[in-house]
């Protein structure tokens, strides 16, 4: 700036000297040049001051707006933080509910399995009793036929003279077969009972 200002002053000085001619310029001219320079400087300063005033006001307005924006964002952040806390709490509760639900599902599955085991066991027991009952019925039937046949054979033997001896022997053999069948049925029953 000083290097830019000096030529101006120097040029003014030379311009004045050309009008005033050789020698020391008159005092009136020096004053007018000085006033001119001061005026230009003041105008620059006034312009600068005006710009600074405008800029200051603009910055004040921007500051207020930024502050309002910051407050709004802070409110939004607080709201979001609250939402996040709420969601976190809800997630924790849901996780606990999920853990409870999975535990309950496991428990129910186990209960169902135990019931299935019990049903299977009962079914096996029912099948067993059914087999025992059938075997016992077979034994009873065979014994009944054996006893009936033996009673008939006894009746024949009391009056053996009235019957052919060969027929009596064959009938006696048949009775033995019936009674062996009863014994076999009884053996099967005893086997089932020991299983």
């Amino acid at each position: 700036m000083p290097t830019a200002a000096r030529p101006v002053v120097s040029e003014l000085m030379f311009a004045g000297s050309s009008d005033a001619g050789p020698g020391v310029p008159p005092r009136r001219h020096r004053v007018s040049r000085t006033v001119g320079a001061l005026t230009v400087t003041l105008v620059l300063l006034l312009g600068l001051s005006g710009y600074l005033v405008v800029a200051t006001h603009a910055h004040e307005r921007a500051s207020v707006e930024w502050h309002a924006l910051a407050v709004r964002k802070a409110d939004e952040l607080a709201t979001t933080q609250q939402d996040l806390d709420g969601a976190t709490n809800e997630l924790t509760a849901v996780r606990e509910q999920l853990a409870t639900a999975t535990s309950r599902i496991t428990e129910l599955a186990n209960e169902k399995a135990q019931i299935g085991d019990e049903v299977a066991t009962q079914q096996q027991l029912a099948d067993y009793q059914k087999r025992i009952g059938a075997a016992a019925a077979t034994v009873a039937s065979a014994l009944n036929r054996c006893v009936t046949a033996q009673q008939t054979l006894i009746g024949y033997l009391r009056d053996a003279a009235s019957y052919n001896s060969t027929d009596l022997a064959r009938y006696s053999s048949d009775v033995d077969g019936l009674c062996r069948s009863a014994q076999d049925a009884n053996t099967s029953l005893q086997t089932e009972l020991t299983r």
Binding site: M1, H29, R30, T34, L38
Partner: peptide
Amino acid sequence: PAPPRTAPVVRLLMATLLMALM
């Protein structure tokens, strides 16, 4: 011709203003 001379006060004022603007 001899260079024009300005008053010391005026020169001081101008220098101050120029220093303020610089």
